[in-house]
Measured scan of single mutants.
Amino acid sequence: EDYYQILGVPRNASQKEIKKAYYQLAKKYHPDTNKDDPKAKEKFSQLAEAYEVLSDEVKRKQYDA
Rank of each mutant, 00 (worst) to 15 (best):
Y63W: 02
V58Q: 12
D36C: 08
L7W: 00
D37Y: 08
S55F: 05
D56P: 01
L47Q: 03
E49F: 06
N34M: 10
Q15R: 11
Q62P: 01
A26I: 13
A48I: 14
K39P: 04
P31G: 08
K35Y: 10
G8F: 04
K59F: 04
A65I: 07
K59N: 04
P10N: 11
K27T: 15
H30Q: 11
F44T: 04
P31S: 11
Y51C: 03
K20Y: 14
F44C: 06
E17V: 07
Q46R: 14
T33N: 13
R60H: 02
N12L: 08
E49I: 13
I18L: 07
D37N: 10
P31R: 06
V58H: 10
K59D: 02
A50E: 00
P31D: 09
N34A: 10
P10S: 13
V53A: 03
L7R: 00
Q24R: 12
Y23W: 12
P10C: 14
Y22L: 02
N12R: 07
D2M: 04
P38M: 11
R11D: 03
L25E: 07
A48W: 13
K28P: 04
D37E: 05
E52S: 12
K39Y: 13
P38N: 09
E1Y: 12
Q46F: 09
V58E: 14
K19Y: 13
A65C: 11
K61L: 05
Y3R: 02
N34C: 09
A13P: 01
K35T: 12
D36G: 13
D56I: 03
Y23A: 15
K43H: 10
A21Q: 06
A65N: 07
Y4D: 00
E52L: 10
S45R: 11
Q46T: 12
L7P: 00
Q62G: 06
Y23C: 10
E17L: 08
V9Y: 00
K28W: 06
R60Y: 01
V9C: 05
K39I: 14
I6L: 12
K41D: 06
Y23V: 15
K41F: 13
E1K: 09
S55T: 05
K43M: 11
K41S: 12
A26T: 13
A50V: 06
L47D: 00
A13C: 07
K27Y: 08
N34Q: 08
Y22C: 02
N34R: 07
A48T: 14
A50C: 04
P10V: 06
Y63N: 02
Q5D: 10
E1R: 11
A50Q: 00
V58G: 09
Y23Q: 15
D32M: 06
D64I: 02
R11G: 05
L54F: 01
P38W: 08
A48N: 12
K61P: 03
D36S: 11
